[in-house]
Design a protein around this nucleic acid. Structure first.
Lengths: 251, 251
DNA sequence: CTTACCCATTGATATAGGTCAAAGAGCCTT
DNA sequence: AAGGCTCTTTGACCTATATCAATGGGTAAG
């Protein structure tokens, strides 16, 4: 058995601690509460959610679903990291997001997914059959309101990303990206530095509208400017956050 | 009185025809049905919507609201065109969308608007006080579902735009933009060509992540390639749609 | 009718970031 | 421990698009 396979197996083992919230009932299938969505729900609602959920584990690089495939499930990341992206016919790729524990994906208005999704690291997710989730939403308008709030928030995030893609320089893009990862880590209860950067330079480039080489050069530049320290194995220390903040907006 | 003022006055006069749908009840204040949102509503629901709505008219370039201002209202465009955008501290601008009759704007999860909004042409909108609209949503979950659908759709559109901004060439961007305008015109019951392009080259550039000059050069290029004909006064004929389709994706 | 302004277009030049190429640096596997 | 991946870094060069500058054209004001 290869190390890859062992790691993949072991991804099943650790059980993330239940989050605090209005209710402590964990999901029956994956033994975690459904984070974002459940934060506002009561025991009965969480129980109903748990009844329709199942668990999914993925190794690095494994696909979850492809763009244009029928959108049969909605997912909630519980551990690891997921990348979502769109492709052009000739293979050019645009990451539209990196998702971490608590994030939802697969919500679609149309009958098919609008993007492809793939694991970045060893990842676990909860899977909700879309039809059954929708039935539940009919029953609990409060959940639906929560989903609307999440969608509105993601829309604001998407617009911020458009500003980055359309109008920021490479340095501004990379500085913004590192600050974003740091803020998200804090949201998940981790430290704001050093941060974990589990995705490749190529993935980062496809997220920021840059090439691998430009991302690499820009990291070197930020390192030389004393704004960051590369600690190896995907850890980056934000040693001068103020400088990064200034750089992320264009001085 | 200047011509500008006369035009602005006259923007109040024309009353758009009621749309077909489940109910024909027009809004009491603006005498149109609330398009996207109302398409699935019954008479009682439309009446309740009409009770909280008021009408707004704007001339070209007039602001509707600014980013970071308290999000007190939600709007529905009933005539004209609106641009929404975000700014960097040094003035660089990214349009995040052009909105046409039927489009909603101002929905926000946070307490403030995520972007600024400004009229492109003489424009009329319906204004819904956010608090009162939210109260209505509690009462009518079906409306909320409709809003969730709209938000999900906009999210998919935003992701498509990220692909454009991050990975397409100038030619692909402009071709995609013209096809987008054409498709949206059809949705509003207009012809797919010639299309009305009411915004300036500069606005288009800020939407596509390009400069005025590059947009202008690219229009010339498409014209020379026989893909479009510039008819003056903001009308563009898509004379070779197939060529545009091919160009919009990178051959 | 004339002037003034704004916007679009075109040209010349500069540059940020892309492309191509090669050399490390970690790893997993054997 | 050695070989072979894959990913990152660095260098040299190139090109798409930005920038700077000038001209033209349409429309509104006087």
């Amino acid at each position: 058995m290869t190390l890859f396979e062992i790691r993949k197996m072991s991804a099943r083992l650790p059980t993330p601690a239940p989050r605090t919230g209005r209710s402590e009932s964990p999901c029956a299938a994956c033994n975690v509460r459904h984070l974002t969505l459940c934060a506002a729900l009561d025991d009965q609602e969480v129980a109903d959610m748990s009844a329709i959920v199942s668990s999914v584990e993925l190794g690095p690089g494994e696909p979850l679903f492809d763009e244009a495939e029928p959108a049969k499930n909605v997912f909630n990341v519980t551990a690891g990291a997921v990348k979502i992206y769109k492709l052009l016919p000739d293979g050019r790729r645009q990451m539209t997001g990196f998702l971490f524990p608590g994030d939802f994906l697969g919500l679609a208005n149309e009958e098919t997914y609008a993007y492809s999704a793939e694991a970045v690291t060893f990842t676990t997710l909860c899977r909700f059959p879309r039809k059954r989730l929708e039935a539940l939403l009919e029953q609990y308008p409060r959940m639906e309101r929560r989903l609307l709030g999440m969608a509105s928030h993601e829309l604001a995030v998407a617009q911020e990303q458009m500003l980055l893609l359309g109008r920021k320089t490479a340095r501004e893009k990379v500085a913004s990206f590192l600050l974003l990862l740091s803020r998200r880590a804090v949201q998940r209860g981790q430290k704001d530095s050093p941060i974990s950067v589990p995705m490749s330079r190529n993935d980062i480039g496809d997220y920021l509208g840059l090439t691998t080489e430009t991302v690499s050069r820009t990291f070197t530049l930020l390192k030389q400017a004393g704004a960051i320290v590369l600690q190896g194995s995907g850890k980056v220390e934000l040693s001068d956050r103020a400088a990064l903040e200034v750089m992320s907006d264009g001085v």
